[in-house]
Every structure is written in C-alpha cells, then in structure tokens.
C-alpha cells in the first residue's frame, strides 16, 4: 500500500508540474503587453516600463515561471494587474461561493441519483425502470444553463419563490445564502444526477447477476436484504469514480451557471479577468481548477486502493 501511495503521489506531482508549465506557456504566448493595456493608449513609454518592472514582467520567462510556481507553493498567487490586490485573496473570496455551490450540487445529485438508480435496477425492464431511464435520457440532453434559465422563469419570475440571481453573502446567515445557491445547485445537479443514476443502475445490474448474490439469496436473505447488504455496497465502486470526476466538473461547470445567476464566484472572476486581460488571475484560477481535478482523482484512487487491495497492483 505504501508503495502504491508513493507511486501515485509521484505521478500527482508530475501531472501538476507539467500542467503548470502548459498553462504558463499558453498564457505567455498571449499577444499584447498587460502593462501597456492597463495604462491605455496614451501612456508614456517610461511609465509602461516602470509598471512592467513593478509587475515583474521584465524578468525572463523561466524566472517568471519559477516566481509564479514558488509563490503558489507558499500561498502567494501574485497581484492582480487590474485590481492591484493579491490574487490569492480574490480567489479565496470567490471560493466561498463556488466551492459550497459545487458541494451542494454534488449532494443533490447523489440524493437524486442513488434512489433512482437503485429503484431502476431493482425493477429492471419494468415500467418503473423505463420511466427512470427515459427521464435520465432527457436529463443528459438538457444543457444545465438552459435548465437554469427555465428554473428562473418558473420559480423566480412566475412563482416568486426564489430570487432570480445574486448572492447575499454568508454574513447574512446560512439560510439566505443557501437559498440563493439552491436554484444554481439544482441546475448543476440534475444533468449530473441523470448520468450518475445510469451508472448506479448498470453497476447494480452487473452485481445482481453475480454468483454471490445468488448465494446470499440461497442463505435465506430476502431480495431486499440481499440488494442492500451485498448489491448496493459492491455497486458503489464505479459510482464513486464517476462522482470523483463529477466533482471537478461541477466546480468547472459552475463557471457557466454562475453567469446565469450573477453569482460572485470563480466563474465571474475568470470572465472579468479575461476581458480585462488580467492574465495572472486567469493563470491562477485555471491552475486551481486543474489542481482540484487532479487532486480529487488522486483521492478517489487512494480510497479504492484502501477498499480493494486488488487495485493496488494495477498500474
């Protein structure tokens, strides 16, 4: 197990290092000088040069890369070109919206998908299964931002149950803040729940066909007991992988949903940064998203290895 953990950790570090080089290089080839952009067309060349020095733009590329990565490792993400505030603080502020939104959506998606998938698998081929499968087929075809607009149209504009957007902040209390995140979380969760329910169903159907399930029944367990004690537990492995992948998708997918609901999360931060050519912010947010994807997959892999010793010897 220790060897496996070390090996996976090494590959995690290599992935992150390569990803950081790729992100840095892509941003570096960006045409245009951020300093000149910030100061406008009529700026004096010496003012631009002074700002370049201040922003560290006059260093060589390898120096700037090392400064960026070194800074991130010590929690210093640099200073935003446009806001002149530390990027780390800006990201931390926005994470307080984006992270709870992703977790809320993941929780909703699980709460919908598990019962739906288990129900469909237990009633395989019957009308209940068909209904669930039809609904999931529709669920994966619906773009989440359009679904979000429909939720706003029905629940905010017509029924006036929720506000159509904005975020009051956590200072006003957990309930109003969670309420503001509810529609965005539903919009993010539903298409994901459709995928997760399908995975849960097919995984459980595979398990139900195994010999040990027949043995469990032969030992005198009822269908229901066998399903819950032996079926669902074993079916969870592939479901967990998909959940790991989905979490990172929810974090990145939140970027679009935040636009629909005018939420001050990472999504709005990155789009503002793109239009203001505040590339240090774009660079850091993208790195953070990639980091979260790689880290979640790493944790999922380790969890598996802990649960299922057979997986440790693979790769």
């Amino acid at each position: 197990m220790i060897r496996y953990v070390l090996k996976r950790t090494l590959s995690l570090v290599i992935s992150l290092a390569v990803a950081s080089v790729v992100i840095f290089l892509v941003i570096e080839v960006a045409p245009g000088d951020p300093a000149a952009f910030m100061l406008g067309l009529n700026a004096q060349p010496d003012t631009v040069a002074a700002l370049r020095t201040e922003l560290g733009l006059d260093m060589s590329n390898p120096e700037r890369y090392l400064a960026w990565v070194g800074g991130m490792l010590t929690g210093d993400f640099g200073t935003s070109y446009t806001y002149r505030t530390p990027v780390g603080e800006m990201i931390a502020d926005r994470l307080w919206v984006s992270l709870p939104l992703a977790l809320y959506a993941l929780a909703l998606s699980t709460l919908i998908a598990f019962p739906a998938g288990i129900y469909a698998a237990a009633r395989r081929g019957k009308p209940g299964d068909m209904a669930v499968m039809g609904a999931t087929q529709l669920g994966v075809a619906v773009p989440n931002f359009w679904f979000a607009m429909m939720l706003v149209l029905i629940l905010s504009i017509n029924l006036r149950w929720f506000s159509a957007g904005g975020f009051p902040g956590w200072e006003v209390g957990i309930f109003p803040a969670m309420k503001a995140l509810t529609l965005p979380a539903i919009a993010l969760a539903l298409p994901q729940a459709a995928i997760l329910a399908r995975v849960m169903r097919s995984s459980l159907i595979d398990i139900l066909g195994e010999d040990f399930m027949r043995t469990a029944r032969a030992k005198g367990l009822t269908r229901r007991q066998a399903l819950w004690r032996h079926g669902v537990r074993n079916a969870l492995i592939p479901v967990l992988t998909i959940m790991g992948l989905q979490f990172s998708f929810l974090l990145a997918g939140g970027i679009i949903i935040e636009q629909v609901f005018f939420l001050p999360g990472l999504g709005r931060l990155i789009f503002q940064a793109i239009s203001a050519r505040d590339l240090i912010v774009v660079e850091s947010v993208v790195m953070l998203l990639v980091f979260s994807v790689v880290l979640v997959n790493f944790l999922v892999d380790l969890t598996y290895a802990a649960v299922d010793p057979r997986l440790r010897n693979r790769t």
Partner: peptide, 17 residues
Amino acid sequence: LIFAFPSLVIAILITAV
C-alpha cells in the same frame, strides 16, 4: 494530463490568449 483540463477550462485558456 489533458483529462485534467475540463473542455471549458481549455476554452478559457485558448480564448484568454
């Protein structure tokens, strides 16, 4: 490595540049 970049993130990088 490419899998670690959701398509939206790739698009953001490309359009930022």
